[in-house]
Simulated scan of single mutants.
Amino acid sequence: MALPKRAFCVGNRTAEAAQALGFDASSAGGDADDLLAQIASVAPVGCLLLLQGQDTAGDLQNRLISAGIETVSVITYRQIAQRLSDEAILLLQGSAPVILPVFSARSAVLLVAELRRTAAKAPLQLAALSSAVAEAFDFPTELVQIASRPDSFAMQQAIEALRALG
């Protein structure tokens, strides 16, 4: 059985990767809500195959099913928590400001656990992919910059804005 040629992707990089594999890919350019809206507007016929991580935000599969779109989900990757490196711990226990780019709410929670475990005391500046990421980062920060869009270019701009302020 051949896969359909259409691919709906949450972001630009995934859409580019899907196009490189020969799919007719489109990017929702945002988050799970944007992807749901894009798929619902097209109303695909047949069953949709949702490739996703083990830990996701937004329960997209059930939301698609609730929208009348038959969906089967397959976990294709897992985000494995990592300990901070000795070098990172040394920086975080210092006195110089540290900019932390954080791309997901889950990453924020994992990072906060590491900051607490290592007794981080450096002045922290958070570059967050979204307001949901910033809300999940439950640790004192001096500055928070939220990316204007949920993509890597906007994150680079958020980091540069923090560098300019710091």
Rank of each mutant, 00 (worst) to 15 (best):
Q19H: 10
S26D: 12
V109Y: 02
S104L: 04
E16D: 12
E135K: 14
L64F: 03
A154Q: 04
P123G: 11
L3R: 15
S148G: 12
T141M: 13
S85T: 13
Q79N: 10
I75K: 02
D55E: 07
D86L: 08
D31N: 12
A7V: 09
P4D: 15
P44T: 03
D151W: 00
D59P: 08
G11C: 05
D138M: 15
V10N: 00
S85G: 06
L162W: 06
A105G: 11
V98G: 08
A37G: 06
R116Q: 15
P44C: 03
N12R: 15
D151E: 08
A28R: 01
E114R: 14
L126K: 10
E114A: 15
V42C: 06
Q125Y: 11
L51Y: 10
R78N: 11
D59E: 15
S27P: 03
V74C: 08
F139C: 13
I39F: 01
A128F: 02
F8K: 01
P97T: 11
D138R: 15
R116G: 08
A132N: 14
L124M: 10
R13W: 03
S131C: 10
A154M: 06
L111A: 11
A37H: 07
P97L: 13
G29H: 08
L21I: 09
P4I: 05
E87G: 03
L51A: 15
S131V: 05
L92H: 12
A20E: 12
L111S: 10
A40L: 04
G53K: 05
R163Y: 09
R117G: 05
T76N: 07
L84N: 07
A2E: 13
G30A: 08
F103K: 04
L143D: 12
